[in-house]
């Protein structure tokens, strides 16, 4: 048997735990195979537990274990990084809990926050540097951790309540899907729901829209004075939240 064949059979044993896979090894190897099988599943289970603490709380330990075990059975890891393994869990939850869409969305939000926590670094434009920007020509350039999620449930409210120990609201679908912005600010992963006007402009905003065009769009929507005032408020909020990338805008 070549090493490639042996490794394929060992992998088959780990993934399936089947008698058929175990029978390809000698009787003397059987006890050891069980140790490796246990290690394999325990490592993946621990990865999912650590990556989705609020989803564990929401589902409860037993249901989470069962869902994680299902994911481990259905989706073997194929990357060197356990972070990459965790990324597929929300998809597995969506298939496992079709009538409870908040479960997968809660996990998706947790995964986005985890990604933002270790995402690429970038100097953010702070309030003191706003004067260095040529706002007539500047294009909005966002820090690389900024990412938009579309949520059809109140998963973000559930996450916030679970994370802060407050009373958790019942799950509900929301009439209009919410656009949630996730990013990292001062080494903390954070999120907020975009307001309706920000949400309407989001596809252009996050594609590098010129700030002058943002002002024009807001003036069209809200009138001259209110539009310019809103543009200023948005800019102050984006800068205060560390969302704009300094090196690309100054």
């Amino acid at each position: 048997m070549t090493l490639a064949m042996l490794q394929a059979e060992f992998g088959d044993w780990l993934m399936t735990g089947s008698d058929r896979a175990a029978a390809r090894f000698t009787p003397a190897a059987q006890a050891g195979l069980l140790v490796y099988q246990n290690n394999y599943r325990a490592a993946l289970m621990a990865c999912l537990h650590e990556s989705f603490p609020q989803t564990v709380q929401w589902l409860g330990h037993e249901d989470f274990q069962a869902s994680a075990a299902h994911c481990i059975d259905d989706c073997p890891p194929d990357s060197w990084s356990l972070d990459h393994y965790a990324a597929q869990f929300p998809h597995s939850l969506a298939a496992q809990w079709p009538d409870d869409p908040e479960v997968a969305e809660l996990a998706m939000l947790e995964m986005a926050l985890a990604d933002a926590f270790v995402g690429p670094d970038a100097d953010a434009l702070d309030g003191t540097a706003l004067g260095l920007v040529d706002w007539d020509s500047a294009r909005l350039t966002w820090v690389p951790t900024a990412r938009l999620l579309t949520l059809r449930t109140n998963a973000q409210a559930i996450w916030s309540a679970l994370a802060s120990g407050r009373t958790v609201p019942p799950a509900q679908c929301i009439p209009h899907a919410a656009t949630v912005l996730v990013w990292r600010h001062a080494e903390t992963a954070c999120f907020r729901t975009l307001d309706p006007l920000e949400e309407a402009l989001a596809p252009r905003l996050f594609a590098g829209m010129k700030f002058a065009d943002v002002c024009r769009a807001l003036v069209r929507a809200k009138g001259e004075a209110d539009g310019i005032r809103t543009a200023g408020l948005w800019l102050a909020q984006w800068a205060g939240d560390g969302l704009l990338r300094r090196d690309a805008m100054t």
Partner: peptide, 10 residues
């Protein structure tokens, strides 16, 4: 192995 990573020292 192809399309698989055990995340263990096998």
């Amino acid at each position: 192995a192809p399309r698989f990573n055990a995340h263990d020292l096998l």
